[in-house]
């Protein structure tokens, strides 16, 4: 009897703690969504209101007026998709090389690659990277925003780890059937790796969609900028003095990855943990 009361109390305490913390964590996003659909009088009311009143979509239209937002959404999507595909291709190719082949220089090249594992070049090396991209004449182009990110040690590592778990028997069988290494790769290895590829895809997409400093620097014109950069532009826009509009832009910037996350949460979590470097 006493034990079960104790358990009930414990559950209630946990419930309260969990409800509070999930509300606290989610509140900023929720408030942004609420503010983005409220008229200025509501946004500027003091004390601030927490609950929405009606639907007011003017803010979104305004945000689209201040900057070429539709184009920026397109840019973000294009860049993210391109980077995601590129990383998957390069990552699985090089992962395949390291997982399934013994070749001269594999060890040393592995170190050369993995030395860069944690380096976000677009930040740590921003000045020289910008110089190189300028010299290619790539500033203000999609090239600048995608090509430097078409491969990463993380993706190679992830794919290599995964390919290693696939039994050698498959490869031997394929060889006996007369399949070339490339055929084995495309016909057997990749189909077997679908979940990990999907997981890597959403992680890469999120990373690319959320890039900030680099697109801000290489995009010279509004029509080449991305959604993340647009937020700050709208915040600093001469004509905007309304948080409703800023929050509308913010919601547009966070919605795609948030929806992706809500829809594929389990996959997200599984692959994220899988991508964590294991010794």
């Amino acid at each position: 009897m006493r034990k079960s009361t104790k358990r009930i109390i414990k559950t209630i305490v946990f419930e309260i703690l969990l409800i509070t913390s999930s509300l606290l964590m989610f509140a900023p996003i929720l408030l942004a969504i609420i503010m983005s659909i409220q008229p200025p009088e509501f946004v500027f009311s003091y004390p601030p209101r927490f609950l929405p009143r009606g639907l007011f979509l003017q803010n979104y239209l305004e945000a689209f007026k201040i900057v070429p937002f539709a184009r920026m959404i397109f840019n973000s999507a294009l860049i993210s998709i391109f980077i995601t595909l590129g990383k998957l291709v390069t990552g699985s190719l090089s992962g395949y090389a390291y997982a399934n082949f013994v070749f001269r220089g594999s060890k040393i090249s592995f170190y050369v690659l993995f030395a860069t594992l944690f380096i976000p070049a677009e930040i740590v090396l921003i000045v020289p990277l910008f110089r190189i991209v300028s010299r290619f004449g790539w500033t203000n182009t999609y090239w600048a925003m995608t090509v430097p990110f078409l491969a990463s040690a993380t993706n190679t590592f992830l794919m290599q780890q995964h390919f290693k778990t696939i039994p050698k028997d498959f490869e031997d069988a394929a060889k006996i059937d007369g399949a070339t290494p490339m055929q084995y790769f495309t016909k057997i290895l990749l189909p077997l790796s679908r979940p990990i590829i999907a997981g890597a895809a959403i992680i890469n997409f999120t990373y690319a969609w959320n890039m900030y400093l680099w697109p801000m620097i290489v995009a010279m014109e509004d029509r080449m900028k991305t959604v993340q950069v647009a937020i700050n532009m709208i915040m600093n826009a001469e004509s905007s003095n309304n948080w409703g509009i800023i929050m509308a832009a913010t919601v547009v910037a966070l919605l795609p990855t948030l929806i992706l996350f809500f829809a594929l949460q389990d996959l997200f979590v599984k692959s994220l943990v899988g991508s964590g470097v294991k010794g």
């Binding site: 959320n210 950069v229 915040m235 800023i246 929050m247 949460q265």
Partner: peptide, 21 residues
């Protein structure tokens, strides 16, 4: 789900949200 949600938002968005709050 609710607690994980901020993972999906960017640092820029995080800045904008807290700048607002």
């Amino acid at each position: 789900t609710l607690i994980f949600a901020p993972y999906a938002v960017s640092h820029a968005v995080a800045g904008a949200l807290w700048g607002f709050l």
